[in-house]
């Protein structure tokens, strides 16, 4: 910042000297001629400049300023802005195409995920690429513009799924359904507190943001696509 907006050009003094001599950077300067007189020029230093004693002396020290902070002020500002734009675009590219770190909320996946936690989503599996039955996926809710959910894939295109496994408990008939092409059937692990495909039907694979790889809040935990893990003997 100090270098970016100061009118000083040329090499900066070393880092230790910056602290001592920083007022020099903001030395008041007269930009405009007053009363037709010439602008005041800084008085030449009285100390004698060290003269090169011989042609074989060591080369002058290299300009240590970074390349994006060299030159006049307008070039410094534009250069820094361009670097910021490139950096933000690179971050956006990574979070949309490669990997995304995000927060998860809600009780719908309770035995698997806590009510609030942090997860890592692989965006390489977006649009349903390489998604299998049993994977945890993050996707957009089809009937809402800005809600995303985190559920488990129950059926892929062509599979037959039970629409509501809890229907028999309520005394209703269970219904089976074939997942249409290009869609997947999803459900939360905590069925009684989950809004999933039972309410809005099969989700198009184009809405899938990616596969949930791991949870890192409260200890690292990697999710495999096998949901049929055996319970512990004590449980």
């Amino acid at each position: 910042m100090l270098r970016l907006f100061s009118r000083h050009r040329g090499p900066l003094p070393s880092r230790r000297l910056i602290l001592l001599s920083s007022p020099q950077l903001f030395k008041p300067q007269i930009f405009f001629r007053r009363n037709g007189t010439a602008p005041t020029t800084p008085t030449p230093s009285t100390q004698p400049q060290p003269q090169p004693q011989s042609t074989n002396s060591s080369p002058p020290p290299e300009d240590d300023t970074p390349w994006w902070l060299r030159g006049p002020r307008w070039r410094r500002v534009i250069g820094t802005t361009i670097i910021a734009i490139k950096f933000l675009a690179l971050c956006h590219l990574i979070t949309t195409k490669v990997i995304l770190v995000s927060l998860s909320e809600g009780p719908s996946m309770l035995p698997t995920l806590p009510t609030s936690g942090s997860i890592i989503v692989s965006r390489l599996n977006s649009r349903g690429r390489g998604i299998k039955v049993g994977d945890l996926i993050a996707a957009h809710r089809p009937d809402d513009m800005d809600v995303m959910f985190l559920k488990r894939v129950i059926g892929m295109p062509g599979d037959y799924v039970v629409v509501d496994p809890m229907a028999t408990g309520r005394g209703e008939d269970t219904m089976m359904l074939r997942v249409p092409e290009g869609h997947c059937w999803i459900a939360g692990d905590n069925l009684s507190h989950s809004i999933d495909s039972r309410f809005y039907g099969p989700v198009p694979l184009g809405l899938v943001m990616g596969k949930v790889l791991a949870q890192y809040s409260g200890g690292w935990r990697w999710f495999t696509s096998d949901p049929f893990t055996k319970p512990e003997p004590g449980e």
Binding site: R127, G128, P180, E181, G182, H183, P204, G206
Partner: peptide, 8 residues
């Protein structure tokens, strides 16, 4: 739009 039948 992305086809709901084939997301690619």
């Amino acid at each position: 739009y992305r086809s709901p039948v084939d997301p690619e």
